[in-house]
Design a protein around this nucleic acid. Sequence first.
DNA 1: AGTCCACAGGAAGGGCAGGCGA
DNA 2: TCGCCTGCCCTTCCTGTGGACT
Length: 402
Amino acid sequence: MSQSNLKSMFSNYIDKDSVFKNKDALTTSYKPDNILHREEQINDLASILAPSLKGNDPSNVFLYGSVGTGKTLVVQHVTDELRSVASEQEIDLNILYINCKMKKVADTEYRLLAKLARQLGEEVPSTGLPTDEIYNRFFEALKDQGGVVVIALDEIDALVKKVGDEFLYNLTRINDDLEDTKVSILGISNDLNFTDYMDSRVKSSLSEEEIIFAPYNAIELREILRDRTEKAFVEGSLQDGVISKCSALAAQEHGDARRALDLLRVAGELAERSEVEKIEKEHVNKAQSKIERDRVVETVRSQPKHSKLVLYTILDMTEDKDEIATGDVYSEYKELCQGVDVSELTQRRVSGLISELDMLGVVNAKVISKGRYGRTRQISVDLSENIRSRLEEMVEEKFYIE
DNA sequence: AGTCCACAGGAAGGGCAGGCGA
DNA sequence: TCGCCTGCCCTTCCTGTGGACT
């Protein structure tokens, strides 16, 4: 594109009417005034947390539901209201919210405690202190706090799976040693069978109350999308059936409202880019594959270099073979490493990397037994040609593979 | 019924980077 | 500067295992 063309493209862009009125209404950070189909959960949570307004410690609560079922939204809504009532009435109430999956922020015991202590106004270094010291600092901060402290731990399942449940045990015990401060834990989990990972003592004290978030069905998703569409798009910019299509696709994905909103947003962006006035069903299809591609590419990009090399080996080998075994991958991977002058890792580690790639949904790997011929992982790749080649290019560029 | 393959995957610990306090 | 701490990535060593083969 020549430079004058570029200029006219930008000015056209400004002149052009956008299909969006307020794109923020389709993002996860958007807080709608009215949360649809979650009245029951909102009321339950509110009544559990209400005692904090009278200075009593509320029961610990556990919220379960898969991704995009409105857990975080409900918690934020209820705690915001609670916070504003508490400040109006000058009640001593502090609500901490932490997402335990935030990389480099709260994904280890130390980081979680440090983050909590910081939210209570305590200065702590991001690393360097022994864990007991961090506990002490956090404890002191709680002690000085007084009143009721509600600690909301989002995606708590991810942290427990990573570091065990001991920190939760300590947190639930904390009330025994505090006199003026009352602490209540609000755990949010994407994994419905999460309690299986926990010690029974932790389980019983943490799940005094439980609230379940069932997946949205296609009809509920449609209503949610309609509601957001009114805020997000200019009237008349959606072709008939677009909303139904988004909700049907998202309903298949475990009733994930986040996915439904993403589909709609990306479809809108694609429509805008192709300079048409209405979002069509075809844009939703394209949005679906774009979202999937972006997800996979971004996941892989953030992986360590050996993970990329292992993936490259797998992609290369599955070009002409549907299923391959760990051992085959390892020997090819070793050759690849020698070719690009990188020292290879052990088979144990590579086996771990393969299982990580499986968990990330980039490859499929299931453990099978071939009887006399041993037990191994059967690895296959279920990615579109488009994504495959993007990934291969990414690794080739990085390692100068020919 | 027992053997044995080709790994899976747990446990322990080494080595390094980043950071603290003395 | 030194000693110590944590997180992270990795290795070493190990035990466990489903099912074809004998």
